[in-house]
């Protein structure tokens, strides 16, 4: 077993602000118990082109957003993870898909290193078997001038849970774009930390989720501008029906001397049920002047005038609502395609 001390950090509780509204006494507790029986997950179905290598590497700690204790517990279950390395200068437009099936409780660690000037489109797809849980620890390192387009697809089924911790570090002039989607998971928490360490880097973080029944999606994001002259954009869109819950926590932190930062964060929710709940926590921490930072959060029902317009053209109410729901989420994918 791994040497990480599982008792070093306390489990998240109600005083943990990074878990605000996230019901840590239920979800963190259950996850910690599940992790006691976790196995390492396998990666398969990979046809790698030349210049891209998949090797095994030592599992390592990642920055979390309030979940250090869970990270330690996960690392106690895995000694090694996978490392995908893209050679310097490799230009590849076709996507590489990493597909895995999840059964029981599994921990997966993946490290992706995109070499200087390389370009990669990566799809990570997790297909969940019934009652399964995946703890996914991912680290992306973009070398100078590298570009990574990343799709993270969580394809859940009945009573499935996902807990993902992602960390992305962008070097000079690196470009990173991610699109995450969560489908049919009973509970999912996604923590993503993005750090710019050199000027000229740019990131676009996208997420589009259709939540239904009793689903709960807990997205936490931290953008750390440690270097001047970087640009980040985040757009998280959710539609909610039935008794679904969406939690969004986003933080743009501009470190001292990170001037000329340009950052925007947006969380938009379309409420389609009187019983659905949205919690939104968009935050800014700005420690340098000469920056342009802003955020927005909006939660609203379907526009009655738009519904009326579609109905007046003969589209039934249910279909009109579904059309507007699809239209609401559609531009997220469009932005990803355009990156």
């Amino acid at each position: 077993m791994h040497t990480h001390d599982t008792n070093a950090a306390p489990l998240p509780d109600r005083l943990n602000e990074d878990w605000r509204f996230g019901r840590p006494h239920v979800h963190a507790q259950e996850l910690a118990e599940a992790l006691e029986h976790a196995q390492a997950a396998e990666l398969r179905g990979i046809d790698l082109p030349s210049g891209v290598q998949l090797t095994s590497c030592a599992a390592e700690l990642l920055p979390t957003i309030g979940s250090e204790a869970l990270m330690q517990r996960a690392l106690a279950r895995v000694q090694f993870g996978h490392c995908l390395r893209v050679a310097d200068g490799l230009q590849r437009r076709e996507a590489i898909t990493l597909h895995s099936e999840v059964h029981g409780v599994q921990v997966q660690q993946l490290r992706v290193i995109v070499g200087a000037g390389a370009r990669l489109h990566l799809i990570e797809e997790h297909e969940y078997g019934e009652e399964s849980t995946l703890v996914c620890l991912r680290r992306y390192e973009l070398m100078p001038g590298a570009t990574l387009r990343l799709e993270q697809r969580e394809l859940g089924s009945e009573n499935t849970r996902a807990f993902c911790i992602s960390s992305c570090i962008c070097a000079e002039n690196a470009r990173f774009c991610s699109l995450s989607t969560h489908q049919d998971l009973a509970w999912a928490r996604h923590e993503c930390t993005l750090e710019f360490t050199a000027p000229g880097a740019e990131a676009l973080l996208l997420s589009a989720n259709r939540l239904r029944s009793e689903q709960c999606l807990d997205m936490r994001n931290r953008q750390l501008h440690s270097s001047p002259g970087c640009k980040s954009r985040l757009l998280c869109k959710n539609t909610l029906t039935d008794r679904a819950t969406a939690i969004f926590g986003g933080n743009i932190r501009v470190q001292p001397h990170a001037h000329d930062t340009d950052a925007y964060l947006s969380n938009l929710n379309l409420q389609l049920s009187p019983h659905a709940t949205v919690h939104s926590l968009p935050m800014l921490e700005i420690l340098a002047d000469r920056v342009r930072c802003s955020h927005g959060s909006a939660t609203a029902p379907v526009d009655a005038e738009q519904l009326f317009y579609l109905q007046s053209r003969g589209i039934p109410l249910a279909e009109a609502r579904r059309t507007l729901e699809e239209a609401f989420l559609a531009d997220v994918r469009l932005r990803f395609e355009q990156f």
Partner: peptide, 16 residues
């Protein structure tokens, strides 16, 4: 800020 909205007939907007 912390924003919590229950239900589908309310509009809440925040910008900073």
């Amino acid at each position: 800020p912390a924003i919590t909205v229950h239900g589908d007939s309310t509009a809440v907007q925040h910008e900073a």
